[in-house]
Structures are given as structure tokens and as C-alpha cells.
Design a protein around this nucleic acid. Structure first.
Length: 574
RNA sequence: UGCCCGAUGGUGUAAUUGGCAACACGUCUGACUCUGAAUCAGAAGAGUCCAGGUUCGACCCCUGGUCGGGCAACCA
């Protein structure tokens, strides 16, 4: 049915990218046509709780959940917790938060691979009884040495032909805890000479005497990924087991294991797609963990991190991530997405939603000489020109206001539309002012104060405000402003490809030393005093900002999510 | 010297039983603007890795190359 819809959508001749399907959907459409698995579509996201989720996982979550929704199917969340030595409850909690925040709804289907340890064990005994698995006494080194190489076949283990009885006995004793870590393993008996190394008698179980975050001390043998994964999919009725490309060579093994237990014609199918890469970003769990544990960033949710929690704290929305995932698409070829696409996605979302406010990050004082002292003029400003329902607010205008330091130049270049001696500019929502003088610091030559006159008839809304003025500046009343700390983030790495390094160095040598800039005593319009953690705004002419989780009423802290596009600095640099 | 996968503008992704390549981001113009934003209008930019073959016709099918990626954890 979905197939027909897509056909119709594509036949309108518009070439609408949103209507085109990816290769996974093409596969599903084909299977549906053939009536495979009774027309069911059931996907899953299977994180290992050994780290925080990043935007690559977000793509996968959205892909799996999106497919389930599109085909009226189901989506499961399943923790792949088969290795107690590296998995922790903290990670389970963070993953739960992140998936929930993204909006992928697993309903009542939250599972753990460890839920299936009993069933897996029973199946393993069956496989032993069928002569398809054996207990090996060799060390991991010996087994590795026998495995051969991609171009050389492996050798068979001396324990490969033990009797079923002996294997069963040994396996039961492994389970009972009679052996130490590493003393024995259970191996599938497939083919030591297979060109695909994963089929050279892969391990099914190893002995790990460790406390598991869910099963406690019940088990001391734990299933390997390949053995546990497909069977977990099978138990949950998963139809499409979507994973990344590095598992492509595992697929025959995935299928082999399913073959051992399959009883009906239902079969889960593994499909691989290319993982997401983004310019100026590292994405591997190992590297992200290193950045955190070696304190290159302040934590997993540092706003410079590509983790879901980092992006959330940075001010990204789930909708923006969805937009991004759609634009990025799904395919099998290696890809590196321009980080500009991510930034475009959050601007696209926030442009529609974020309330406009005024904030001056690098303030310089403007004194309006002909404006009465001690007078507050409340002016009205639109909250969001993109959203008529957003309403308006009153903002105090006074004789002394702050403007942005780089909105003033003593000797402006030709196309500078902002404030300069003799120039008229509009103070947004208030009056047109003219710069008549300025004062410099004698030591530094820095501008200390700017003197202006205003045109009382030019108040926004009045007749006199109609006249054309090239520049419009944002401003904040000096006496009414509220102070804030503002954190400006830049890309974490200096180079497009952080892995591109000189001999002997690693990606960390490409860290951008200026990725975090903290500005104190920024001036905000007074209404922002009430802003709460997570609130998002557009600081006009500057960018999108959100209130950090560490922010307090008497110590406001904002994070810059992303600056506005800026054709002026681009032009003025060239 | 094996097995598996991939190759389309700068970057991604599309092209539905083969019918002379589309969309998005980015870039560049211009219009509009009380945000140098947004919006709107427009432009440049690939002839689909290469060589053969099949065909009236190939991004698509076949053959052979080239280049890139993955695979040898008691990790997932």
C-alpha cells in the first residue's frame, strides 16, 4: 500500500525529494508485495549501554522508528547488554532519556538481551545436541592463531570433535561456574576454512565471572553479539534488523544462527546502511569517551559534543534532528555530511518557533543627548514575525542604551549600514538616531561612549518612522538591562576531517582551542530575567540561544545554539 | 593474496519494468526587509569512476579493470 502511495507521489512529476524512498524502503516494499512475514514490519534499536548516544544513533533511531510508523508497524527498544564488564546503568538511563526525547515511542516494548539468557542457553544446548557446537579448552591466543587470516584458511581446534555428551557436560559445568574466565568457550561448528572469517567456528559463549546490571550473579557465561543478536530479533518478531555497514560480513552468521532455531517461515532480515559522518566532528564511541574522560570537554552533554544530550543542551530540538535525518538520507556508500546541513536544520526549526528578543553580547554605551534623563519609554516589539500568534511585548527604552561594539565604526567601509559618525540608524522598535560624536579610551583607542541625537517623530509606528534608514540595530536599555553569561560554541575541531593528522599525532591535535568562548556581563532585555533552563530564543541579528541547565535567576547562563546566517561578515572579510 | 560492499555537481540523496540526470545543503546574483536573518526570484556547477559489450536508446543490464571502505576482539 505504501508502495502505491509512493508511486503516486513520484508520478506528480515534481521530483519532490520527500516522496522518494530509500533502498531499505524499496526492499520492504518488495517483500510486502511478496507477502513476507505476513506483511508485518517490526524494527528495533539495539544500543549497547556502554556510552552515550550520538547523532549517528539518532539517525538510526529515527530511521527505525520512522519505518515502523510509515508501515504501520512496531518499534522496539532493546539493550544489547551481553557484556557485563563494560556496561553500566548510567548509560541505560541516558539512552532511555535520549530515545524518549527524540520521540521514538517503544510503547511497552522495552527489552534487554539479558531477558533472553535462559532461552539462549536452552537453544545452545539444542545446537550442541545437533552436533553444531562444541566446547573449546584453548586460550584466546591459541584460538586466534588458528583462525587464519583473511587470505589464509584457519585450522581446526583439537577439541572440535568432542562427543555431544562431553560438550553438553562441559557446557553445563561452564554455566555452573566450575571454570575460570577464559578457561573454556562454546563455539559454533561451521567451517574453519570459510572465506568469511566470521564463519570460522565463531564463539557463542565465554566465561565472565562478573556482576551484570540486570541479572546480577545468576550467570557466569555470557553470549557473544552474533549469537545473541539475531536470536533476540527472532524472539521479538523483528522483521527488519537494520544496522551499520560493518556488520555486513556478519550477516551470513546472523542467518546461520537463525537457521538453527527457526521453526516457521518467519525470518528477521538484517539490512545494513552507511553510518553517519559529519565534518569537523568525531563520532566513534571510543573517541567521544576519550574526550570526556580526559576532560577535553566538560562531560557527555557538553554542548560541543555530537551526543544527543550535548545537542539537546546546545539547544537543538528533536524536530531539527528529524529534519536533518531526512535531508541526510539513507544509503550504503560512505558519506561525510557538511556540518552546515545540521546548522541549517536547527535554524529552519527555530526560525518558526523561537521568540525574538534583544541581547547585546559585547556592549558599548550610546547616550542619546536629547532624550530626557530618568524617563522610560515602553516600546512594543513583535515576538516573532514568522508566527502571528506569538504576540508582542513591551521593552523599556531609555536615554542610555547598549549596542553591539561591532555595530559602530569610526571609519566605516563603503557598505557599512550600521552606526558611524554622522550616520542615521534605526534602533529596532524604537527611534531613528544619529551619531554626533564618540569618545575613545586614550590608552587603548577603544570606543568608550557614543553620542547620538534621536528624532522624536521617528518612534516605530509613527509617521516619521516610515523613512528609509539603511541599518537597524538591536539595543538594550542600560539602566533596565539584565546581565547574563553567554557561552559561544564553535566547532570542536579545526579541521574538516579530524583524523587527518601528521605522523605521530592523533585526532586530538586537531581540537579547536577556541571552541568555547565565555562572555560575561552581556546585556539582555529585562523580560529575560524569567527565562528558564531549556527556553530557546532568537537574539535578534545574532543567533539562536537557549538557557543552560546551570542557569539561575540571579546568574543567567545562555548557550549559543547556532549563529544566524551572516552575509555581512562573509562579504566584509572578502 | 581471499571474501563482502560501494562509486551520480563542492556535500548529501533521487532518477519506480532501460527513455538524454532531479531535489536539498552550500556558493553567487537580484528583489524585499524596522533582524545584512527569514522570504521571494534567478544563476553557476555533474553528463553519472574507466574500458568494452547488449540495445533504437544505458546512471540503470553484462564483462573486465580502477579507486574507496569493511572483515583476522573470549567487543558490539
Amino acid at each position: 500500500m505504501a508502495y502505491e502511495e509512493n508511486k503516486a507521489g513520484l508520478n506528480d512529476g515534481k521530483g519532490d525529494a520527500g516522496a522518494s524512498i530509500n533502498f531499505i524502503e524499496a526492499i520492504i516494499n518488495e517483500e510486502l508485495k511478496q507477502g513476507k512475514n505476513g506483511g508485518r514490519v517490526h524494527t528495533r534499536f539495539p544500543p549497547e549501554p556502554n556510552g552515550y548516544l550520538h547523532i549517528g544513533h539518532a539517525k538510526s533511531i529515527l530511521l527505525n522508528y520512522g519505518i515502523a510508523q510509515k508501515y504501520n508497524g512496531k518499534f522496539n527498544l532493546r539493550f544489547d547488554d551481553t557484556n557485563p564488564t563494560r556496561e553500566e546503568q548510567e548509560y541505560v538511563d541516558s539512552i532511555l532519556d535520549d530515545v524518549k526525547w527524540l520521540g521514538a515511542d517503544w510503547e511497552d516494548r522495552l527489552f534487554f538481551a539479558s531477558d533472553y539468557f535462559d532461552q539462549l542457553y536452552l537453544w545452545a544446548e539444542e545446537i550442541i545436541k545437533n552436533g553444531k557446537a562444541y566446547v573449546d579448552d584453548q586460550s584466546s591466543e591459541e584460538i586466534a592463531a588458528q583462525k587464519g587470516t583473511p587470505v589464509k584458511p584457519g585450522d581446526e581446534s583439537p577439541y572440535r570433535n568432542r562427543s555431544v555428551e562431553e560438550n553438553l557436560d562441559l557446557f553445563r559445568r561452564m554455566k555452573a561456574g566450575e571454570f575460570k574466565n577464559g578457561e573454556k568457550v562454546l563455539r559454533a561448528k561451521i567451517d574453519m576454512a570459510h572465506p568469511n572469517m566470521h564463519l570460522r567456528d565463531p564463539l557463542m559463549y565465554r566465561i565472565i565471572h562478573a556482576h551484570h546490571h540486570r541479572t546480577g550473579d545468576k550467570w557466569c557465561i555470557y553470549p557473544m553479539y552474533d549469537w545473541a543478536h539475531g536470536e533476540s530479533d527472532f524472539l521479538e518478531g523483528i522483521t527488519h534488523s537494520i544496522c551499520t555497514l560493518e556488520f555486513e560480513v556478519h550477516r551470513p552468521l546472523y542467518n546461520w544462527f537463525v537457521d538453527q532455531i527457526q521453526t516457521t517461515d518467519y525470518r528477521p532480515r538484517q539490512i545494513e546502511f552507511a553510518r553517519l559522518n559529519i565534518t569537523y566532528t568525531v563520532m566513534s564511541k571510543r573517541r567521544l569517551l576519550e574526550l570526556v574522560s580526559e576532560k577535553y570537554v566538560q562531560g557527555w552533554d557538553d554542548p560541543r559534543m555530537p551526543t544527543i544530550s550535548g545537542l539537546r543542551r546546545r539547544g537543538y530540538t528533536p524536530e531539527a534532528l528529524k529534519l536533518f535525518a531526512e535531508k541526510v538520507g539513507v544509503a550504503k556508500r560512505d558519506n561525510v555530511i557538511d556540518v552546515a546541513l545540521l546548522e541549517h536544520s536547527i535554524r529552519e526549526d527555530l526560525n518558526k518557533k523561537a521568540a525574538r528578543v534583544m541581547a547585546v553580547l559585547d556592549p558599548v554605551k550610546v547616550i542619546i543627548q536629547n532624550f530626557p534623563a530618568n524617563h522610560i519609554d515602553m516600546v512594543t516589539l513583535e515576538n516573532n514575525p514568522e508566527d502571528q500568534d506569538a504576540g508582542s511585548r513591551e521593552v523599556p527604552f531609555t536615554r542610555e542604551v547598549y549596542i553591539e561594539r561591532d555595530d559602530f565604526m569610526v571609519e566605516p567601509p563603503k557598505k557599512f549600514f550600521r552606526m558611524a559618525p554622522g550616520n542615521e540608524v534605526r534602533l529596532k522598535g524604537a527611534y531613528i538616531v544619529k551619531c554626533v560624536d564618540f569618545k575613545l579610551d586614550e590608552q587603548t583607542g577603544e570606543v568608550v561612549e557614543i553620542y547620538c541625537t534621536y528624532d522624536p517623530d521617528s518612534r516605530s509606528g509613527m509617521e516619521g518612522s516610515q523613512r528609509k534608514v539603511k541599518g537597524t540595530l538591536h539595543w538594550v536599555s542600560a539602566s533596565e538591562a539584565v546581565n547574563a553569561t553567554i557561552r559561544l560554541f564553535d566547532r570542536l575541531f579545526k579541521t574538516e576531517d579530524p583524523s587527518d593528522v601528521a605522523e605521530g599525532e592523533d585526532y586530538k591535535s586537531n581540537l579547536n582551542p577556541d571552541s568555547l568562548k565565555v562572555l560575561e556581563n552581556c546585556k539582555l532585555e529585562p523580560g529575560l530575567r524569567e527565562a528558564k533552563p531549556g527556553d530557546k530564543f532568537q537574539f535578534q541579528r545574532l543567533g539562536y540561544f537557549c538557557v543552560d541547565k546551570e542557569s539561575q535567576a540571579d546568574n543567567l547562563i545562555f548557550n549559543r545554539t547556532v549563529p544566524l546566517r551572516d552575509s555581512w561578515t562573509k562579504q566584509s572579510k572578502s
